[in-house]
Write a protein that binds this DNA or RNA. Structure first.
Ligand SMILES: NC(=O)c1ccc[n+]([C@@H]2O[C@H](COP(=O)([O-])OP(=O)(O)OC[C@H]3O[C@@H](n4cnc5c(N)ncnc54)[C@H](O)[C@@H]3O)[C@@H](O)[C@H]2O)c1
Ligand SMILES: NC(=O)c1ccc[n+]([C@@H]2O[C@H](COP(=O)([O-])OP(=O)(O)OC[C@H]3O[C@@H](n4cnc5c(N)ncnc54)[C@H](O)[C@@H]3O)[C@@H](O)[C@H]2O)c1
Lengths: 212, 212
DNA sequence: TATGTTTTGTGATTTGTTTCACATTAACAC
DNA sequence: GTGTTAATGTGAAACAAATCACAAAACATA
């Protein structure tokens, strides 16, 4: 386990998630047809950008007629592989782990957190209805639910170790909330999310704006 | 309030946050001197990239001698405006809001969550020690603590409305966890963090890798 | 069926970012 | 001191992303 991989999804794809979010809202509002400028406005980009992004992923509209909301939604969802629900596990039932596991809207995004793990026995039995297990049962549950994706919300010191175990048990995608850059083999996808960085970058931008 | 702004901090700066995280760890491990390739290895980039990034922000090392850990740390912290602690408020004490407000390590990053707000009276008095207030007291507390940064963790329907109020009360930087792209005036910085997208992008990348 | 209008789709161009290549400098050995 | 080596720092080159400009398609209207 030597190689590091930087996942970093393409900006175009990140924007497509954004367009998708807008579309869902427009769709529930009864909008049946959208144009590149509709999405561009909502996403804060240019209409050309929207079309170029679609072009990259072979998403087509009707010239003059724009895009049908439902068609666009289903094309995007195929792209996201959202035709099936993905089983996901979560390791580390602390503050953040519990918040994520209680969030009810992941399922609408095709994300199903089937089980959580913690070394703390108190957290394992915190609630009878929540599926919190000791790490010893990882292998069993990963196999039972055919899980390939894991969310890591353990303290920084444990993160790399937990990661190594998960990879050895067949996990191929990791969302890492601990503030360490995980080292994984090339065939594993990692997305490092650092909430402190996200907040601090805003603090910094504001301080700099004030100076000018 | 018409203009939308896309915050999007420079990639180079985002990487500097990464280097900083590594440095803090190396420093506590007793490492006094680092080289561009030390940081590059940990951050998953090339050494040239590290030096170019430093160059952009006028951070200098010693040729042949690399960089002194402590000097580098303090130079970065000046860059981040971390010489002073920033007071931040949080609106929406649900799952995510509570997780964030309980996190003990923001203060090490110069982020101090001085107060939280919720419309739910039960959450306002959930714990005597935690400073949770009704939104009616926003103005008062923003002024008292000279707050310019807010974290939004309310449901999507309320997000834009809360945002508008905050901007009117003097907030100039927002970290938004709700899945809507907030519209703000140009002089306000917004960082939209969408946790569902972060997870889903990994699910998608893994599905695609399996296909190939 | 022809004509005008609207909007897509995409090469060509511009702008931005990363990598390369090497001159420059500091540390160290002798 | 002087030479050798190991690092930085940065223009130049290569690459990637965004914008521009316009041809192609779809539709409405007559
Ligand atoms: N909570 C936040 O707002 C926040 C913000 C930024 C970063 N983070 C990062 O996210 C991670 C989680 O944060 P948190 O506040 O939830 O921490 P926490 O301490 O509340 O929770 C960590 C949990 O992981 C469990 N754990 C530890 N080692 C484990 C192991 N080997 N296997 C399984 N479980 C294990 C602990 O028992 C605990 O329940 C940390 O790395 C933290 O730095 C959190
Ligand atoms: N929890 C997660 O893991 C997660 C994941 C992805 C996205 N999000 C998003 O983050 C946001 C918060 O998520 P959550 O799970 O904590 O939701 P939640 O429903 O648990 O909490 C929302 C809180 O906001 C409060 N609130 C509502 N309107 C308000 C107002 N106008 N002023 C002040 N407070 C108000 C509610 O009383 C509640 O306590 C949501 O927009 C959600 O979509 C959360």
């Amino acid at each position: 386990m030597k190689q590091i991989t930087k996942h970093n999804i393409r900006n175009s794809l990140r924007r497509i998630f954004l367009y998708h979010g807008l579309l869902v809202r427009l769709n529930t509002m009864g909008v049946t047809r959208v144009f590149s400028y509709t999405l561009a406005e909502g996403a804060g980009v240019t209409p050309e950008q929207v079309r170029k992004d679609f072009s990259e992923y072979r998403i087509r509209g009707n010239r003059r007629g724009g895009y049908l909301t439902v068609t666009l939604l289903s094309e995007m969802e195929t792209l996201f592989n959202r035709d099936r629900i993905s089983n996901v596990i979560l390791v580390g039932m602390g503050n953040l782990g519990q918040a994520l596991s209680k969030y009810g809207q992941f399922i609408q995004r095709g994300i199903n957190i089937v089980a959580s793990f913690d070394i703390d026995p108190y957290k394992q039995k915190a609630r009878a209805d929540s599926n919190v297990y000791p790490p010893g049962r990882l292998q069993e549950i990963i196999e039972r639910f055919r899980v390939t994706i894991a969310i890591i919300t353990v303290p920084d010191i444990s993160a790399q170790e937990v990661c190594n175990d998960l990879v050895n048990m067949g996990i191929r995608g990791i969302v890492n909330f601990s503030p360490v850059l995980l080292k994984v083999p090339v065939y594993v996808v990692v997305n490092n999310v650092n909430l402190s960085d996200e907040i601090e970058s805003v603090v910094m931008s504001v301080s700099r704006m004030k100076e000018e």
